[in-house]
Write a protein that binds this DNA or RNA. Structure first.
Lengths: 107, 107
DNA sequence: GCAACACTGAAGCATTTGCTTAACTATTGC
DNA sequence: GCAATAGTTAAGCAAATGCTTCAGTGTTGC
């Protein structure tokens, strides 16, 4: 589910925005309410909610509402999926370089 | 240089587009010319060049022109920088969970 | 020389994005 | 009950994005 291209698309798109990355950064230090997430950001609460909805749709963040406060937290599995995509490509490239090195050493 | 927020911004933005990720994926298997990159994509060569310029500006891809063909290859350092950003946030979150677990076990 | 090739750059255009404001709903504290 | 709090939703708008086409430039092969 987390590795399907559509979800990956949403994740990288979510991470593309500086404000959203700042929100993820904040959440990496612990759960926060919407207002707490908004506090360091120079934009309306409404804008923050829109960013948050994207983050949630991407799977990077999970939220639950208790009373009137919505508490947000990171879902590390989604972060791991994004990490994994990048890592695989980098390793693929580096393994290729290694093989090339071996080949040149042999000849 | 690779870790400054502006560069990180460009990298994640570059990775946000499916066509550009497909190009990175292709390049992870080895260098390619612009036309080779374009071949599997359902868009004009001109569009591919525009994507490529973004990838290059982000630092993810390096290119060099020999004669009339521009050969592209991945720069693994940029991939590593993006990977690193995600990894740090995930680890930060997971360490927090661990400490919480320890605390609960103690009490 | 000159045609085919491999791009490159600019202009234009529809769509998407990242906000804003304003009006609204649902909780909470007193 | 009712004001303050916490968030939600919709409408609107300027700017950015992802294309397109078309008209180039420089390179290569014959």
């Amino acid at each position: 589910m987390l590795h399907d291209p559509a979800q990956l698309d949403l994740m990288f798109q979510a991470l593309a925005d500086p404000a959203r990355r700042q929100m993820v950064d904040r959440l990496s230090r612990g759960p926060a309410s919407v207002s707490q997430l908004a506090e360091p950001l120079a934009m309306s609460l409404s804008a923050v909610v829109q960013h948050l909805n994207l983050l949630e749709a991407s799977g990077l963040v999970r939220t639950q509402k208790v009373g009137r406060v919505r508490t947000c937290q990171i879902d590390p599995r989604a972060l791991r999926a994004a990490e994994h995509w990048i890592n695989e490509r980098r390793l693929s490239w580096e393994r290729r370089l290694d093989r090339l090195g071996d080949f040149l050493a042999e000849s």
